[in-house]
Design a protein around this nucleic acid. Structure first.
Lengths: 335, 335
DNA sequence: TCTCCGTTGATACATTTGTAACATGTGCTA
DNA sequence: TAGCACATGTTACAAATGTATCAACGGAGA
């Protein structure tokens, strides 16, 4: 990508993703080269994880062929090809890296927002990959079993705590979060009464607030189950409990990104809903209960926005043709 | 890919995904090992694509440390670790796309959370692509110009409104949001006093609450500038103002996804910060002001033994003095 | 202060991985 | 059949990558 210096520019295929490059060069290929190219397309991970020798062995061609292949699609050598192949797995990464360094000069607002969102893409990607199956199950179990649930979050995390609490509150009774009115002291007054049948969920991201850590340690010491939601094993609350969910929340423009954390929390709520016996019913009941407060849905469907034709804007693909679905059915019963 | 799972754990940490292994071994780690582990978690792609030498260079530890790290989490050597790391990328990719549509059967909690996050990835992608440069600039202008700012959000969006308000509050005076204590009536009491010099930001996603729509219409009619944050041109509040920011927030498991909306909001705050003259200063002042409430650097972590306190690379001036991955400086001896 | 111990990095060495020169083989044309 | 062009494989060598040993450093305890 960057340092293709002094190459004899024989073919035009010097950029693009690996599959693109391959299909561009494919017509000229023959025999062994095609075989290898096919294999790369079919089993990119296998190719990525082994060396040139390993790869050719699976295909039955020679190392020379593999090497020629890498050059034929525009790389300096096999090593460069492989490195690029690996990067390709993480789609979100490439653009972010660029943007990261480009901010801070004169950038338009749209660019900054885009960069910020890009970084969240990378965060989400990482968060998803770092999920641990066991821990997720355990967390959901704990939530379903708990008599009372208290969500602790300070400062930034307070809002997240509120969102989590209100999400869980749809399926579980007695969920509350540390509100700014309580403060840590008020929280401790509440938590003093919590026991092994209850549950505390602490959300803490850098910069870690001491109150959050101490409240968590306090309840944990008293035998209250604890779920920690934080950014990595190095976090002070990760050490307090077995049940830790990690979200990556890095941010160029501020200390942490709440968006990726929220994505994790919403996923968690989804998982709880999925295992709650009456979740569908509950949603539907609420939907009809809330009806009077809702803006009347355009009756029937798709009435063209008559009077005020906002005709200035082209219809964004965002809303292209689909009405938001009020309630999604989750047919599922607990095991 | 995930097939290492099944086998019985014979000697401690010999199974599981890389992040699992890391978090299991993490408590015993210290100093350099932690630094390297953090880097692996933070930049897995970078680690995967370069050799052991390249990886350690980015962290600032020695190759020996990286090698020890690989063994410590149960691999025979660094090469094996790297191969496994690479495989890990794919496992997350293929299945998730499927899951999106296949939920509702027996899915594990981790699968559901992963699917949920995947959907948010798609949402973010769409949101980023649909940004309109003009609108973004205009929104930021409005925010910077406004004397007072009121953020309106009901139900779900209330928490988002709170987050936006507290984000903007760092750079602008007189920002408040509709708190649950106020209710719509309380809000109207406030907004009654707002005029053309002020600004209202309304966040509304399906299901659209009538209160949000009416409050917005009310203020707009009185000449108060309005920024709408919603899901598409079909939204009832999109029609009320020119300045509409769209976030895609579709969700399989619930009516809307707040995460992608939040990503947009955080981007917006970032853009405001970027154009605020004293944003860096403000962040730093706050950082030192808040110090007493923060957890001191973690107990087990990073002893100041090297007495080279993390010679961090210079970062964007906007980044408030935080290092996601500490780059440790090696003392280079000339050969 | 000294000694012990754990942690870490430097470096020489072993191994793996990639490259390029050369060899083989096949099919075509004269 | 010789001669050539092209595709492919073999293999020696070069470069890179990974490993093991050992020394330096700093802290804890005598």
């Amino acid at each position: 990508m960057t340092s293709l210096h002094a190459r004899p520019a024989e073919s035009g295929s010097v950029s693009g993703t690996i599959p693109e490059r391959i299909s561009r060069a494919y017509p000229q290929f023959s025999g062994a080269l095609r075989a290898f190219a096919d294999y790369v397309l079919a089993e990119p991970v296998e190719v990525a994880r082994t060396s040139i020798h390993g790869a050719v062995q699976s295909v039955g061609v020679s190392v020379a062929t593999a090497n020629r292949f890498a050059r034929a699609i525009g790389f300096k050598g096999y090593a460069e090809f492989r490195a690029e192949l690996i990067s390709g797995f993480s789609s979100a990464f490439a653009p972010v890296e660029k943007l990261k360094n480009e901010i801070s000069r004169q950038s338009t607002s749209a660019e900054i927002i885009a960069a910020s969102i890009s970084q969240d893409l990378a965060n989400l990607e990482a968060t998803r990959q770092n999920l641990r199956a066991e821990t997720c199950t355990e967390a959901v179990d704990l939530i379903l079993r708990a008599e009372r649930i208290y969500v602790v979050g300070i400062d930034n995390s307070a809002h997240l705590a509120g969102l989590l609490a209100s999400g869980l509150g749809r399926y579980r009774p007695n969920v509350r979060s540390l509100s700014s009115a309580d403060g840590a002291f008020g929280a401790s007054r509440q938590l003093f009464r919590y026991g092994p049948a209850d549950l505390v969920i602490t959300i803490a991201f850098p910069r870690y607030f001491r109150d959050a850590v101490e409240l968590s340690r306090f309840v944990k010491d008293r035998g209250v189950p604890l779920i920690a939601i934080t950014d990595g094993p190095a976090s002070p609350i990760a050490a307090l409990t077995e049940t830790v969910l990690y979200a990556r929340a890095e941010r160029q423009l501020a200390s942490t990104s709440n968006a990726s954390v929220l994505a994790l929390l919403e996923g968690l709520v989804g998982a709880v809903a999925h295992r709650s016996p009456r979740s569908v019913e509950i949603e539907q009941q609420f939907a009809s209960f809330a009806l009077p407060w809702l803006e009347p849905e355009h009756p029937g469907q798709r009435k063209p926005r008559a009077s005020k034709p906002a005709a200035t804007k082209p219809k964004s693909p965002l809303a292209a043709g689909r009405r938001p679905v009020p309630v999604r059915k989750l047919k599922k019963t607990p095991k």
